[in-house]
C-alpha cells in the first residue's frame, strides 16, 4: 500500500464529506425543506473517492443523476452545491440546474446528468480532446448497472476502443435501477460487455476504498500512457432508495440492515486503517466532526441565501443571440 498518511486522511475526509452531505440532504428533504428530485450516494462513497484520488484538476469526469458524491470527490465546493440544491442564486449553477445538473468545469466536473446513459458519450469527447491535443489527461464516465443497458454505453465503449481514447468507464453497480434488480435487467455480465469491446475490464469491490483506488490507479495510469480505455465494474450498494421518497419496498429488511451495517465503506476503511496502525481513531473522529460542522454551515448559509432574480430566467440560453 503506497498511500501516504496525507492521502489516507484525504480519502477519509472526502468520504465523510460525501456521507454528511447526502445524509443532511436526506433529512432536509424529508422535512420538506428542499425542492425537486434528489438521488443520494450514501453507501457508494469509496467509489467516487477511490477513482477521483487518481485524477488531477485537468482530468474530467461525467456523472449521473446520483452525482453529489462524484462532484465532491472531484473538488466541487459543498456550500455552492448545497445552495444549488435549494435553487439559490449563488448555487454552483446559479440555481438553474439543481441536484441533477451540478457542474463545475473549472474542477473538471462535466456535469451530473438527468438522462440515464447521458454522460459516457460526453467523456469520449473529452478524451478525444486530450488525444488530439496530446494532453496527458483522462476522462472518466460514471454510470449505473441500470444505465449499462443503454445503447449509449455500448456505443461509447466501442468508440473509445476503436479510437484508443484515454476514457475510463466506471459502472457503479448497486444492484438496482429504480425498483428493478440487476439480476433481472442485465443480460449476461457487465464485465463481459467491456471485454467484448476490447476494454481492459476489472471487477472491483466498491465497499473497499483500497481496492477501488488500486484498480483505478492501474487503468488510469495506462490510459494516461496511451494504452487506451478501460471498464471498472464496481460492486456497491446504496443505503437510501432510488430517490428521496422511495419506500424501498423492493428490498427486504435484512438487505437494508446488511447494507447499512456490513457494507459501509466508511466503517470498512476506518477498521482497516486503525487495525493496520496507519491512522489513529482521534484523527478519524476529528474528520467526522469537521465534516458535520462544514455541512451544517453549508445548509445554514444555503437557507439564508437569496433566490435568483427574475432576469436570470432569460440569461445563458446562448452566449449571444
Amino acid at each position: 500500500m503506497q498511500l501516504s498518511r496525507e492521502e489516507l486522511l484525504k480519502a477519509y475526509q472526502g468520504m465523510c464529506l460525501i456521507r454528511e452531505f447526502d445524509d443532511a440532504v436526506h433529512y432536509e428533504f424529508a422535512a420538506d425543506a428542499m425542492p425537486g428530485f434528489v438521488h443520494l450516494y450514501v453507501g457508494e462513497e469509496a467509489s467516487a473517492m477511490g477513482i477521483c484520488m487518481n485524477l488531477n484538476e485537468k482530468d474530467t469526469i461525467a456523472s449521473t443523476h446520483r452525482g453529489h458524491g462524484h462532484c465532491i470527490a472531484k473538488g466541487c465546493d459543498v456550500t455552492d452545491m448545497m445552495k444549488e440544491l435549494y435553487g439559490k442564486k449563488d448555487g454552483i449553477c446559479g440555481g438553474k440546474g439543481g441536484s441533477m445538473h451540478i457542474a463545475d468545469l473549472s474542477k473538471g466536473m462535466l456535469g451530473a446528468n438527468g438522462i440515464v446513459g447521458g454522460g459516457p458519450p460526453i467523456v469520449l469527447g473529452a478524451a478525444l480532446t486530450y488525444k488530439t491535443k496530446k494532453m496527458n489527461n483522462v476522462s472518466v464516465g460514471f454510470f449505473g448497472d441500470g444505465a449499462s443497458n443503454q445503447g449509449s454505453i455500448s456505443e461509447s465503449m466501442n468508440m473509445a476502443s476503436v479510437l484508443k481514447l484515454p476514457a475510463i468507464f466506471v459502472c457503479e453497480d448497486n444492484g438496482y435501477a429504480e425498483s428493478t434488480a440487476r439480476e433481472y435487467a442485465v443480460g449476461g455480465k457487465i464485465l463481459d460487455r467491456g471485454k467484448a469491446f476490447g476494454l481492459d475490464s476489472h471487477e472491483v469491490d466498491g465497499d473497499n476504498f483500497f481496492e477501488v483506488y488500486e484498480a483505478a490507479k492501474h487503468v488510469i495510469d495506462n490510459a494516461r500512457n496511451g494504452k487506451g480505455p478501460a471498464l471498472l465494474h464496481i460492486k456497491t450498494s446504496k443505503v437510501y432508495g432510488h430517490f428521496e421518497g422511495d419506500a424501498i419496498s423492493y428490498r427486504t429488511k435484512e438487505e437494508n440492515e446488511r447494507i447499512k451495517n456490513d457494507e459501509d465503506p466508511l466503517k470498512i476503511f476506518k477498521k482497516k486503517v486503525i487495525d493496520a496502525g496507519l491512522l489513529e481513531l482521534t484523527q478519524l473522529e476529528n474528520i467526522e466532526n469537521e465534516s458535520k460542522s462544514k455541512i451544517k454551515k453549508a445548509i445554514e448559509e444555503s437557507k439564508d441565501a437569496a433566490f435568483p432574480n427574475p432576469n436570470d430566467l432569460l440569461t445563458d440560453v446562448y452566449i449571444k443571440y
Binding site: S179, T180, Y184, I248, S249, Y250, E255
Partner: peptide
Amino acid sequence: AGGAGTNGEQDAW
C-alpha cells in the same frame, strides 16, 4: 410494475 428480480415487493412502483 417494478420489483422485477428482487426479493421484495412485486409491483413495487
